[in-house]
């Protein structure tokens, strides 16, 4: 391992995360239309999460196996959600329920 154990890069990551927190707040004040506002917020959250995973959790420089584990959980969750929505969003009359 040839790490320098310097804290400096982590400071940059922290600052980036804090900036993105304000960006997501700013984006929420803007009306992008129904599903798009949520997707923008999701995109920013995923960016922040990636920063944490890649730098704080040292996935950068980790073995391929660890990288797979890091991505795998989220990927599987995506499949889960997609199939549930495949039902919920295609049910006739569900949206007029109330």
């Amino acid at each position: 391992m040839s790490e320098h154990h310097s804290l400096k890069p982590y400071v940059f990551v922290l600052v980036g995360l804090l900036i993105l927190t304000w960006v997501t707040y700013g984006a929420a004040l803007w009306d992008f239309g129904h599903p798009w506002s949520d997707l923008v917020a999701l995109l920013i959250a995923m960016t922040k999460a990636s920063l944490v995973v890649v730098f704080f959790m040292h996935v950068k420089g980790a073995t391929p196996l660890i990288k797979m584990a890091a991505v795998g959980g989220f990927f599987w969750l995506l499949i889960f959600g997609a199939f549930v929505l495949a039902d919920v969003l295609t049910r006739p009359g569900m949206l007029e329920f109330l």
């Binding site: 929420a28 917020a41 999701l42």
Partner: peptide
């Protein structure tokens, strides 16, 4: 993820 999902929706 919780922050935007819970606190920020419909802000605009």
């Amino acid at each position: 993820f919780l922050f935007p999902f819970l606190y920020l929706i419909g802000l605009a």
